[in-house]
Design a protein around this nucleic acid. Structure first.
Lengths: 225, 225
DNA sequence: TGGTCGTGTTGATCTGGATCAAATATCCTC
DNA sequence: GAGGATATTTGATCCAGATCAACACGACCA
């Protein structure tokens, strides 16, 4: 990424490795002072924000290689909580130190801008998903997203375990638990995947992609074409 | 914001003022190479992304003081289009130049991080809105958001014109045009606001806030409490 | 003055997915 | 390994909001 090995070393110096965290542990809670970004090394983390009615909105599931906490820079305070879904190794990067480093290393600064920008892009994708896609498309998109992200880390794109509950999946996708459950059943019946508890096998990636893509016509066809 | 007048001047030097743009003009289209960020001085702009089915998702409406294009840094290419909604004055900031400047001015770099982070925060709010709120709450939130943003720029928080169509509002909020129209009528009947064509008068801000806030119970109560 | 087009409103109907209700299946805890 | 709490699944019903279908305005123009 345009960083010299010396740069990498300097970056490496400010990263704190914490001992493994376990299911249910918090990286931070909403309202906490913002100090660090976190990077998932192994395991998974969910972030979620309280909604005014007392419920919560799951904002994302974070897999190895992904960064958490970027939304807190603005207000210097976390607006969401991050909870570990399974035993995980997480790195902590004190933001103050990182910021100093990025001032000194232009290519690192550029990477930071890209990282923040990429996060906006993800959110945009979610907006499209929540605004325009039906239940089936949402779940297919979710499964494919997991698949692709795991694959990027060298893991199997078609055989993996879900570390989150159906409840959390539903919350994330704006669907009721029951709908998620029914869709898993339907997808299995249709030969798209095999589901056993938390264990997922995607049998027909192309078909799932077609579902997300453009064949099905979204929520009928809602709004502007 | 921790910038000296000299800093401001250097920043000012790289900003391009373009002649006024008119309704329908594009700042950029999705797929365009990313070169600059844009800041609305007066008027308004909508950004929207194509959805696979051929429709589009309105991603945001941008009012004076707001910045456009941050999502394109990552891929060095725009993933959405930006269209002017009414005669508007827009500033262009070549990103390359800005990036050089932020390397030299730490407080400006910090502002950039905050800006990007804030954008993520906005998107997060929208996710919550689309994922957990019903039609009524969405429209109330939309109106209040406009109100607050206009007020921040010294304009009336309760009396303004909508530069976007009902269609665009619906698309943005994940609602059908008809629903938006009906809600305007209902809000008016309930004495919350006065609507005349594009002209809006908010008569009862507190009541609107209550609608968004926590009294109504969202989409019933959906998902986790 | 009348016609056409785009936008907005209003009414009737339909439906995807939420809710409600129950029956399992898993998971802990001691 | 029994017993209670939690998660998941499945079935029945309901309803907010989408869709379908007219109709009402302007705005603009010939």
């Amino acid at each position: 990424m345009g960083l010299t090995s010396e740069d990498i070393e300097r970056l490496d110096e400010i990263v704190k490795r914490t001992r493994p965290l376990h299911r249910g542990d918090f990286l931070f809670r909403d309202g906490d002072r913002f100090r660090s970004l976190y990077v998932v090394k192994t395991g998974s983390v969910k972030t979620f924000a309280p909604s005014p009615e007392g419920g919560e909105q799951v904002l994302g599931f974070h897999l190895p290689g992904e960064i958490i906490g970027l939304d807190a820079i603005d207000k210097d305070q976390h607006a969401c909580s991050a909870k570990v879904l399974e035993t995980s190794a997480i790195c902590e990067i004190p933001f103050q130190r990182l910021e100093e480093l990025t001032s000194a290393i232009p290519s690192l600064q550029h990477q930071m801008y890209r990282l923040l920008s990429k996060e906006i892009g993800h959110d945009t994708d979610m907006l499209l998903l929540l605004g325009k896609k039906n239940a089936e498309e949402r779940l297919a998109a979710f499964l494919l997203s997991l698949s692709q992200r795991l694959h990027k880390r060298g893991l199997s794109p078609s055989d993996f375990y879900l570390s989150m509950s159906r409840h959390e999946i539903g919350n994330y996708l704006g669907l009721a638990v029951e709908t998620v459950s029914r869709l898993f059943t339907r997808f299995q019946d249709d030969g798209l995947m095999r589901v056993d508890r938390k264990h997922i096998e995607l049998l027909d990636l192309p078909a799932l992609e077609a579902l997300v893509g453009g064949n099905g016509q979204g929520r009928r066809q809602n709004q502007q074409r």
